[in-house]
């Protein structure tokens, strides 16, 4: 298909692209990119990398409970970040917790993204009543804090679910609640860009030959409105992780049997005043660091994609 001699390979081209160049030349992007990478590897490789399995009750021993982190007196190299009240390794718990936090974050953003893109495209492309209804709904929702919406959705869905299914479905309920809470921003951004793109001549050129609205939206407009949406998605990923942590901290999120970072922080909070600070502080640092890194990455991406700043 392609003249291999004429054009360099896909990888080489990607490496040479403006985005890659900007990444390589931005210290902020490099540092936060590295931090995010560490979180990902730690979280998704937790099965192999974690020193202990925090969910294997057989391996837990109460004699190991409340061990402090390493440089302190009484610490053990086997439990670098110390242990909690049940003798669970804090580092391992963080790695498993980060995985859950990331899964919830990604899934919630994926949901918000698909919902927002679909509704934004519809509103922007068709305008009129469709636009008015969808955007007023988005406006109303935007006037409440997203956490409040998530709480509300979470409460409603739980009330609707049969009692027995609640614990099993908790993860999905949480994803759904956060996803619903975050779609309006995506929809607004997509609608704005769609309004601009719809008037462009390439869209008219497609209409002239009779291409239908769905095809035009999916294959012509969507690729051209994706840039700003991806930036928004990156920044929202951090916020969705925070949403999840907040809900879990309030006890509305994931149960202690499936601890996310928020659950860990909430759990450790009980022991903060008895001096066992590491149980809550380490997950806190990881959460804050990860969200910060993701947001910085989003900021960089926004600048890198903005042609006017280049």
């Amino acid at each position: 298909m392609s003249g291999a001699t004429a054009s360099p390979g896909r990888l080489a081209r990607a490496w040479d692209s403006d985005i890659a160049w900007s990444f390589r030349h931005s210290p902020v992007a490099l540092v936060s990119g590295f931090a995010v990478l560490v979180c990902f590897v730690g979280a998704f490789g937790c099965g192999f990398l974690a020193p202990h399995d925090p969910f294997n009750l057989a391996s837990l021993s109460l004699s190991n409970s409340f061990l402090p982190p390493v440089p302190l007196k009484g610490s053990s190299w086997s439990f670098v970040f110390g242990t909690d009240d049940q003798g669970r390794d804090v580092l391992s718990a963080i790695m498993y917790g980060t995985r859950i936090s990331l899964i919830v974050g990604f899934a919630a953003i994926a949901m918000a993204l698909s919902l927002g893109i679909a509704l934004g495209l519809l509103a922007g492309y068709f305008g009129g009543v469709t636009d008015a209804v969808l955007m007023r709904a988005a406006d109303v929702q935007l006037s409440f804090p997203s956490l409040l919406i998530a709480l509300l959705v979470d409460g409603i869905v739980r009330a609707l679910l049969p009692r027995g299914a609640q614990n099993a479905l908790e993860l999905y309920v949480l994803i759904f609640a956060i996803g619903i809470a975050r779609w309006p921003q995506f929809a607004r951004t997509v609608r704005g860009s769609t309004l601009v793109e719809r008037g462009r001549e390439y869209v008219m050129a497609a209409r002239v030959i009779g291409i239908g609205p769905v095809r035009i939206m999916a294959s012509h407009i969507l690729p051209n409105v994706l840039g700003p949406v991806l930036v928004l998605a990156t920044i929202n990923l951090g916020l969705a992780i925070l949403d999840e942590a907040t809900l879990s901290f309030l006890g509305l999120g994931l149960p202690p049997t499936q601890p996310s970072l928020g659950t860990l922080i909430s759990n450790g909070n009980n022991f903060l005043y008895s001096g066992d600070w590491w149980i809550t502080v380490f997950p806190g640092i990881v959460l804050a660091g990860m969200v910060l890194a993701i947001n910085l990455l989003g900021d960089w991406l926004r600048d890198a994609l903005n042609p006017r700043l280049r």
Partner: peptide, 26 residues
């Protein structure tokens, strides 16, 4: 005529702005 693909095929349009009339992602 526009609803009939056989007739619609027989008309087409060239636009003013060569920077906006080609989808930049294609």
């Amino acid at each position: 005529a526009r609803r009939d693909a056989a007739l619609r095929r027989r008309m087409n349009m060239i636009f003013q702005d060569p920077y906006a009339s080609l989808n930049p992602r294609w």
